[in-house]
Amino acid sequence: MAPNGEGAVAAPAVGKGRREKPKRISMEGLQRAMSDLALELTKADSKKQQADPAGGGAGKLPGITEQVVVEEARCECCGMLEECTPEYVRRVRERYCGRWVCGLCAAAVSAEADRRSHGDGGGGGRTSTEEALAAHMAVCGRFNRVGRANPVLMQTEAMREILRKRSRPNGPRDHAHGGLTRSSSCIPAITKDINCASK
Rank of each mutant, 00 (worst) to 15 (best):
residue 12 P to V: 00
residue 61 L to V: 05
residue 33 A to K: 10
residue 10 A to S: 11
residue 32 R to Q: 11
residue 133 L to H: 00
residue 81 L to P: 03
residue 140 C to H: 09
residue 190 I to H: 07
residue 152 V to T: 13
residue 47 K to S: 14
residue 150 N to Y: 04
residue 35 S to W: 02
residue 37 L to P: 00
residue 179 G to T: 07
residue 109 V to W: 02
residue 190 I to T: 07
residue 189 A to Y: 12
residue 67 Q to A: 11
residue 140 C to F: 07
residue 73 A to P: 01
residue 75 C to K: 01
residue 11 A to M: 01
residue 70 V to H: 07
residue 68 V to A: 14
residue 198 S to W: 02
residue 158 A to H: 13
residue 184 S to C: 06
residue 125 G to Y: 04
residue 28 E to T: 10
residue 37 L to W: 10
residue 41 L to N: 13
residue 185 S to I: 07
residue 135 A to T: 10
residue 20 E to G: 13
residue 152 V to K: 01
residue 11 A to D: 09
residue 112 E to G: 09
residue 35 S to A: 15
residue 6 E to C: 00
residue 127 T to H: 06
residue 88 Y to Q: 08
residue 64 I to L: 10
residue 133 L to K: 02
residue 71 E to K: 11
residue 99 R to Y: 02
residue 101 V to T: 03
residue 48 K to L: 15
residue 60 K to M: 08
residue 15 G to M: 13
residue 93 R to I: 05
residue 31 Q to F: 02
residue 35 S to C: 04
residue 115 R to D: 08
residue 197 A to L: 13
residue 159 M to R: 13
residue 11 A to W: 01
residue 3 P to A: 05
residue 56 G to V: 05
residue 3 P to M: 03
residue 149 A to E: 13
residue 161 E to A: 14
residue 156 T to V: 09
residue 128 S to D: 15
residue 87 E to A: 08
residue 147 G to M: 10
residue 91 R to I: 04
residue 121 G to W: 10
residue 80 M to S: 12
residue 124 G to I: 04
residue 136 H to T: 12
residue 5 G to D: 02
residue 23 K to M: 06
residue 167 S to T: 10
residue 122 G to K: 08
residue 101 V to H: 01
residue 126 R to G: 04
residue 35 S to F: 06
residue 97 C to E: 11
residue 1 M to A: 05
residue 110 S to N: 08
residue 128 S to W: 00
residue 74 R to K: 15
residue 190 I to L: 15
residue 33 A to Y: 11
residue 78 C to S: 09
residue 175 H to L: 09
residue 105 C to S: 08
residue 4 N to S: 12
residue 160 R to M: 07
residue 158 A to D: 07
residue 143 F to Q: 05
residue 183 S to Y: 03
residue 64 I to H: 10
residue 175 H to N: 03
residue 101 V to N: 01
residue 61 L to A: 13
residue 148 R to C: 07
residue 133 L to E: 00
residue 193 D to C: 10
residue 173 R to Y: 09
residue 151 P to D: 15
residue 145 R to A: 15
residue 106 A to I: 03
residue 53 P to C: 13
residue 100 W to A: 09
residue 33 A to C: 12
residue 157 E to L: 05
residue 45 D to Q: 12
residue 21 K to D: 07
residue 179 G to H: 06
residue 159 M to V: 08
residue 16 K to R: 11
residue 79 G to N: 15
residue 16 K to S: 06
residue 14 V to H: 05
residue 38 A to P: 00
residue 89 V to K: 04
residue 194 I to Q: 12
residue 69 V to K: 14
residue 196 C to G: 02
residue 16 K to I: 06
residue 198 S to L: 08
residue 84 C to E: 09
residue 26 S to C: 04
residue 147 G to S: 11
residue 184 S to V: 08
residue 33 A to S: 10
residue 145 R to E: 15
residue 36 D to V: 10
residue 39 L to F: 01
residue 115 R to G: 02
residue 86 P to W: 00
residue 59 G to V: 03
residue 133 L to S: 02
residue 8 A to R: 02
residue 92 V to I: 14
residue 47 K to F: 15
